[in-house]
Design a protein around this nucleic acid. Structure first.
Lengths: 339, 339
DNA sequence: ACAATAATCCAAAACGTTTTGGATGTCAAT
DNA sequence: ATTGACATCCAAAACGTTTTGGATTATTGT
């Protein structure tokens, strides 16, 4: 018993394939009685349209594409959270998600090409923008709608981002308010687009506060916990070590906390720590991690909504969304210190 | 400038569509010189085959389907971890993932039908089996290959599972070794397939140890943190409260820990706690959570491997894999107690 | 009675591939 | 010269849908 097609129903009912198709699609140029007849047969046969054929003919797939980076060992919480948000809204609008896991590089770009030029998707969601991002360059040369989480300098594409510069600046002020004078930064890899504004925010805040500018207090990590730990090690080994360490994501902050504890120091009392993102683990860390919240799930939802509007050719009120950062003060940043 | 198709290359090169197709596909009935010519033109035009058309014709899509449950509020860590594993291996073998987020129920089933009968995928990965699982019934009536994480009683389908009964039994013994006599269980919802063996393991262990059988010590949660907290509340309000609480997943265990702490009791000292899964948050909880490890990521990888073998019609050595549980003893289960 | 309109249906083309079953030409062996 | 083998090519069918542009009847208005 093979799968039923329009032809099967056509044979069974005596009507042409065209009429069957139009009856099922709800066109009004088919007699209500024959429509009922056809629907009844379709249900009896368990007819399910071949979506591949439909997509080929009708040029759209009701599918949103996403390429997620394959970070060798660990599953990336950030991406999974984003994925959930996008997937939820996509489903709400009748869209599915096509995922391809790829390590950044050549293969990754060809995954984009497969999806877009292979016309498997109606639009793409892209995240973790790089400084000169070949993927965005590629998409720009395409008729394909897309939206981006994050942005680089030249932002003539639809994006949603959290104002990282302002967030970091506020966090530096927070630590300064608490009496810290030597505040360190664990920066993201240079090639990531959000690195520049965050580092800039750091320097700007020091300037505003009249604090000295010490390049030794900025070390770069790779966003992993391990690299956060290594960075903290290095900072604490300095002749004049910092009293506060700001990491540019929560994972590195958690790594730093571990390193601090291993050294026999107390997080929050001896060394203050902050992160960026507010992943679920941040609140349940011990001590709970002070951080800058990015509502990743909600951003994912919004990205999907915007993308679907773009796909439908509807107007989008604001293509460049820059969200206000929200400081979440918890115990890891300690208490105001005297002196 | 429209997208290049075989026709474009055919016109450009003077060869027929057939020859272009066969040249690019690497058939040996085309002159090596013309093949080079055609490849060169294809590259110049940035030709990318229309995958929809290819799929329609060739009956396979190089895509694995997965329907993930839409738990209203939170993104489900378990599923995300599984997804990563499946996605990683899928990519390794040149497969993409088609995801549909759905709330369990009617819509969910029709998402399966869309994927399978709509021939959008070559195989399905299914997780979180229910006791009488309509999805499995549906897939059984289909020619579609599929693999399952978890299993119910009638296991005539390919699955991988962790031996929950044995795991729970070992954990009861662990607590008994530490001197506990009143050990409670926070069970999973009844309709989930893994509920029965775990509860069975609990009773079996009590029997083996000659401990009394007290139905009041088993309460059911819904896998969420909140329900774990509520369950713990109820257990601790008992006239003769338990000294150890075993939750059937980590999220409920973390909820129970929170409830215990709120009551002014100390986890590990006043009340021992254990979970199931070993999600990342388990290790970094405070105190770290004793649990039964499920290597979800690796299971995801293996599911994908098996599925792909099935799709290719290759033989699979073992279609029913039952993994040994691995106890991970951490501080939340406390110390051996005297008396 | 006749034209115009409305209601209902359908054949054929199109989407871009892959595959089938030769067709054509060349070359060596008889 | 004929045969067979080989190398190279291609027209046409097929996959299952949607859409286009009528065709056929039945109904209405004059």
């Amino acid at each position: 018993m093979k799968r039923a097609t329009l032809k099967t129903i056509s044979d069974e009912s005596g009507f042409s394939i065209t009429t069957v198709s139009r009856a099922l699609a709800g066109y009004d140029d088919v007699n209500e009685q024959t429509r009922q007849r056809i629907i009844e047969i379709a249900q009896r046969l368990g007819y399910q349209p071949n979506l591949t054929a439909r997509h080929l003919r009708s040029k759209h797939t009701n599918t949103i594409g996403m390429v997620i980076p394959l970070t060798a060992h660990y599953s990336d919480l950030f991406f999974m959270e984003l994925l959930s948000g996008v997937g939820q809204q996509a489903a709400q609008h009748g869209y599915d998600l096509l995922l391809s896991a790829q390590v950044p590089g050549e293969e990754e770009l060809s995954a984009y090409r497969r999806m877009v030029d292979g016309s498997r998707v109606d639009g793409m969601v892209l995240a973790r923008v790089r400084r000169h991002d070949a993927r965005i360059d590629y998409l720009k040369g395409t008729a394909q709608p897309y939206v981006v989480f994050g942005h680089s300098g030249d932002d003539d594409y639809p994006y949603i981002d959290v104002d990282g510069e302002k967030g970091i600046r506020q966090m530096v002020h927070h630590f300064a308010d608490y009496g810290h004078r030597r505040i360190a930064l664990i920066a993201p890899p240079d090639e990531l687009a959000f690195a520049a504004p965050r580092v800039a925010g750091y320097w700007a805040a020091l300037e505003e506060l009249g604090l000295p500018r010490d390049p030794a207090l900025v070390v770069t990590g790779d966003l992993s916990m391990d690299s956060g730990a290594a960075a903290a090690e290095r900072l604490l080994s300095l002749p004049d070590p910092p009293t506060a360490i700001m990491a540019c994501n929560d994972q590195m902050a958690l790594g730093a906390m571990a390193a601090i504890t291993t050294r026999g120091l107390r997080v929050g009392r001896d060394v203050a720590v902050s992160g960026f993102d507010d992943i679920p683990a941040a609140a349940s860390a011990s001590p709970p991690l002070t951080t800058i919240r990015q509502p990743i799930y909600q951003i994912g939802q919004r990205l999907a909504q915007t993308l679907i509007r773009l796909i439908h050719g509807e107007t989008v009120d604001n293509l460049h969304v820059l969200l206000e950062p929200e400081l979440v003060i918890r115990a890891s940043s300690g208490e105001p210190r005297s002196g």
